[in-house]
Computed example of a mutant assay.
Amino acid sequence: MNKNRIKKLSALAETKFLNLYDVEYEKKNGKTGQWAMASRKDLETLNGQCFENREEKTDAAIIAALHEKSNKLVCIRQFRVPLNDYIYELPAGLIDGEEDFEESAARELREETGFKLAKINHEKTRKRIYASPGMTDESAAMVFCTCTGDGSDQQLEEEEDIEVMLLSQEEVKALLKKDVKIDIKAYMVFQAFVEIGEKLFK
């Protein structure tokens, strides 16, 4: 990590899954600036990362999976409260406790879709990426893999409203032409799947 420019963190709001912090930091000209930041991490964890050089913990796992039997991409359409609408996404979820991202990816894929993770493409998988760094430090592992089995929604939590789909290259191509809400991570995977197909996952 480069020079630590964060000088102080103050909690503004804390909830079960998301926290809001006021950040005092040093600007490039040496002056002090303020920033509002959302985080999955509690204040103790953030202070440890910023001021005690503790290793950053990846927050979530995102699963880009190809169903082996059908040779189709696993996709979900999920209701998201902030949008008050459904959005096309990839299966994903928070990493629990001491799980590594691979364990989390297998668990979330099974819980959200009913599919079983078969093989991870370690060459394309990334341990940590960031989707909206201007607003949050949230990070996720991007896991490219294949999966097996039949889809199911039997393990969904009460608040999860998810439709599971298997999409061919042509179906993804057609979806990208529609005026529908698509998560940015899913959008990038959709584009790559249209261009290079199953090579993305194997």
Score class of each variant (00 low, 15 high):
residue 1 M to N: 12
residue 1 M to E: 10
residue 3 K to Q: 06
residue 5 R to M: 09
residue 5 R to G: 04
residue 9 L to K: 02
residue 16 K to R: 11
residue 17 F to I: 02
residue 20 L to A: 08
residue 20 L to F: 02
residue 22 D to Y: 00
residue 24 E to T: 10
residue 24 E to P: 00
residue 25 Y to T: 00
residue 32 T to S: 08
residue 36 A to G: 05
residue 37 M to E: 07
residue 38 A to N: 01
residue 40 R to G: 12
residue 42 D to H: 14
residue 46 L to P: 02
residue 47 N to M: 08
residue 48 G to N: 13
residue 49 Q to S: 11
residue 52 E to G: 03
residue 53 N to M: 09
residue 54 R to F: 11
residue 55 E to S: 14
residue 56 E to S: 06
residue 56 E to M: 11
residue 57 K to C: 07
residue 59 D to R: 02
residue 63 I to W: 03
residue 63 I to V: 09
residue 65 A to Q: 01
residue 66 L to A: 01
residue 66 L to I: 03
residue 77 R to M: 09
residue 80 R to C: 12
residue 82 P to M: 10
residue 85 D to H: 12
residue 86 Y to N: 03
residue 89 E to K: 05
residue 93 G to V: 01
residue 93 G to E: 01
residue 96 D to F: 14
residue 96 D to W: 07
residue 98 E to S: 14
residue 103 E to V: 00
residue 104 S to I: 00
residue 104 S to E: 05
residue 105 A to C: 07
residue 105 A to T: 05
residue 106 A to E: 15
residue 107 R to V: 06
residue 109 L to I: 04
residue 111 E to Q: 11
residue 114 G to P: 06
residue 114 G to V: 11
residue 115 F to E: 00
residue 117 L to K: 04
residue 121 N to S: 12
residue 121 N to R: 09
residue 123 E to I: 12
residue 124 K to H: 14
residue 124 K to N: 13
residue 125 T to N: 02
residue 126 R to E: 14
residue 128 R to L: 11
residue 131 A to W: 06
residue 132 S to M: 07
residue 132 S to I: 07
residue 132 S to V: 09
residue 134 G to L: 13
residue 137 D to M: 05
residue 137 D to W: 04
residue 137 D to F: 06
residue 138 E to S: 08
residue 141 A to E: 09
residue 145 C to Y: 03
residue 145 C to S: 12
residue 146 T to I: 08
residue 147 C to K: 07
residue 149 G to F: 01
residue 152 S to E: 11
residue 157 E to H: 05
residue 157 E to R: 15
residue 158 E to H: 13
residue 158 E to N: 14
residue 160 E to M: 12
residue 163 E to N: 06
residue 166 L to F: 15
residue 166 L to M: 13
residue 167 L to H: 02
residue 167 L to S: 02
residue 168 S to T: 09
residue 168 S to W: 09
residue 171 E to Q: 15
residue 172 V to H: 05
residue 173 K to Q: 15
residue 174 A to K: 11
residue 174 A to M: 10
residue 175 L to M: 12
residue 177 K to W: 04
residue 177 K to V: 09
residue 179 D to M: 08
residue 179 D to A: 14
residue 179 D to H: 10
residue 180 V to W: 10
residue 181 K to A: 12
residue 182 I to F: 15
residue 184 I to V: 13
residue 185 K to Q: 10
residue 185 K to C: 07
residue 186 A to C: 13
residue 188 M to L: 14
residue 190 F to G: 00
residue 190 F to T: 03
residue 191 Q to D: 15
residue 192 A to I: 01
residue 193 F to I: 08
residue 194 V to I: 13
residue 194 V to K: 01
residue 194 V to R: 02
residue 195 E to W: 03
residue 195 E to I: 07
residue 200 L to I: 07
residue 200 L to G: 09
residue 201 F to R: 03
residue 202 K to G: 14
